[in-house]
Nucleic acid binder design. Sequence first.
RNA 1: GGGCGCGUAGCUCAGUGGGAGAGCAUCCGCCUUACAAGCGGAGGGUCGGGGGUUCGAAACCCUCCGCGCCCA
Length: 851
Amino acid sequence: MTKELPAQYPPADVEARRYAQWVHDRLFEADASSEKPPYAIVIPPPNVTGVLHMGHALDHTIQDTLIRRRRMQGYEALWLPGMDHAGIATQNVVERKLAAEGLSRHDLGREKFLEKVWEWKAESGGAILGQMKRLGDSVDWSRERFTMDAGLSRAVQTIFKRLFDDGLIYRANRIINWCPRCLTALSDIEVEHSDKDGELVYIRYSDEIVVATTRAETMLGDTAVAVNPEDERYRHLVGTEVELPLTGRKIPIVADEHVDPSFGTGCVKVTPAHDPNDFEIGQRHGLPSITIMDERAIITAHGPFLGLDRYEARPAVVAALREQGRIVKEVRPYNHSVGHCSRCGTTVEPRLSLQWFVKTGPLAQAAGDAVRDGRVKIEPAELSKRYFAWVDNMHDWCISRQLWWGHRIPVYYGPDGDVVCVGPDEQPPAGYTQDTDVLDTWFSSALWPFSTLGWPDRTADLEKFYPTSVLVTGYDILFFWVARMMMFGLYAMDGTPPFGTIALHGMVRDQFGKKMSKSFGNVVDPLDWVERYGADATRFTLARGANPGADVAVSDEWAAGSRNFCNKLWNATRFALMNGAHVEGDLPAELSTVDAWILSRLHATVAAVDTAFDTYEFAKACDALYHFAWDDVCDWYLELAKPVLFAEGPEAEATKRVLGEVLDTLLRLLHPVIPFVTEELWTALTGVDTVVTAPWPAHEPKLANPAAEASVATLQYVVTEVRRFRSDQGLKPSQRVAARVNVTEHEPLIRNLAKLDVPGEDFEASATLSLTGGLSAEIDTRGTIDVAAERARLVKDQAAAEKEAAQCRAKLGNAEFLGKAPDHVVDKIKSRLAAAEAELARIAAALEKLS
RNA sequence: GGGCGCGUAGCUCAGUGGGAGAGCAUCCGCCUUACAAGCGGAGGGUCGGGGGUUCGAAACCCUCCGCGCCCA
């Protein structure tokens, strides 16, 4: 089959059309009833408010590559898409919309507000799903899931009830991370720490007691001063009381080992209601907790500071203390680590409140063991350390959020403090009222690998595809999301972990290795690349940089390079189709050396690519494919095939078939990474409908042909040396020159590639190119030989050979080397020396001739 | 402060005991009937510094310097 192709690959004309066809033909839909072995990936659910960024593009490229290859290998491949409901983020979006109309969610009430959220989701949520299509993601859209769907909500309620009944969920008054803007509790992982310039103020509580603090306003809630029990300076004060300034309250001085005597003055103010460490000190010493701020971080303590925001209160408190002469020292700026809400950036305020927690101890233990005993593999294995560091030191997980958007906690309160946890098919007793909080979004995300397959029902999907094969995600969320899925998967699925392998990649960075950030202005939009360079080029750029667990640096120039590669493939196939390449019938029984060589290289490439993909070495797979395609196929094989094809003999017929074979296999190997251009080219080449379901190339060792590889290597060597000579001599590329060559093989091909004519009657060799292995080319440059250039070239070669010879001689002159190095190493050095010496002799003779 | 990791060509990165590599960038020459998004050729590195182990170190060990990430 032949087809007219334009001279440049036009991604925009291909991508949308091909993607629509794939979806229409249901090529990405998995069949739970098939006999094929399963291969499943659940997508790390993007946020319903989110848009596609480079991190997604990398993550999805990797998953799509894995899935597409397995699909071609004959697995029942399922890549399941969907989104999470992003409690805080989504509620913020909708509240902002309401605010524009002058409304708050309280004006609407809970029910109405949730209707508004669903409306927003229907209208503008999930933009990212459409963007995934532009990348070419081969996800099964018929199985798209959302964490707030009925089925997934049922899964949430089911596991909550089970955990509750098992005593693994409890409610307690604890210090939690509180966002005074979002007005909700946050878990540890939703808090980002960064260094900030603040102040360290030393406050005199008495003649002997001076405390240092970065949050002076919290002193209003102090209920003790703590010192280290070993600290000689204060030992005599333990058990006495001191008057808390500004309040007149008497507070005790307690001894607690937690206090670091070397920090500040060695005295610590203790504010149990507003600091996690102080809370623990308070617990140990039975101290009261005095809450001095409301949920918006506004001072509620009676007195002159009542009603001030925490940042107004801080200088006001310091000023009042200064007036009393109680400020001993002020360090400003004082650089220290401060926690911020990961959603809105507001400084987190530790707050004592009643919240729900998951008791992580036994769950985290199981999650760690599954990796320790090898049931789950982490790729690259080195990152297991980070995983263990997290799961082995996990704190109990605060799962309640003071939001409306999310899974409402299925706990009801009755009279006399009765508490009932209700399962999915149960009704609460009449008159009981439901807890007003919702669950952390990660709580439902942690169920994703099985809730999306139908759990708690034993569905066909669950039977077929659980446990999933591999989870692909960035190392940056290994320790929270992945660990949580492991905990819940093991718990819900009777000890079967949710995936066999965790394949980790890094973050996408700019061309200088800098993190992409808006403030830096170095953010690249993947869709911008899709438009400018094509989806394939975008994917190839990312895959080509994806070393396991390592960050990927990208730039426009590299994306352009990938686009060039796609175009190279396009033109190679275009050329092949114009010259009769095809895939009909068996490979020819008789192969020319050149045809045997390219098939040998092809199958070495198949083996290399298989190994690389099997070990998540995407960069290596891409590198092998890039070099095979560009160097071996385009630069050499097509050029060598040209004279054969143009001559139209029986050898041409064989080469047409081999060329078809090479491109057929190459395009199938590349399809998982660059699906669009390969689909377009492969279908044109083969006449088959789609490469999506074409078989993955088999590695055929019998095609390995070392003799042909050696023969072509010699040809390449001679051609390259002649080209080098020509370039040094300033001969134009198009200028043919007469030459007498003594080579045993491939003379016509060498003459063709090196632009050497057969000597005529007036031939007069003006330069002799002597080559390794007794090969030579005598060239007639019509007397215009540039002796200086030729001498410079030879001298350079001579220096290289001398260096090589000297290195070898030094080794061989070393008795210890001869005695201790293995024989094969010694032999290799000997043959290298022999080759270098022959080279030196050849060059010396050539130099002699020049003078 | 604790933990993990990195330092190889101008940039980004492979290479983990036996000849320093790739892509991009740079320089020179070319519109060579698949491709100028291209072709041919070339230059460029005391493998962060120092010490050690070894016949042999970019690689293994120690130390110093610089950088990054996570946790507190």
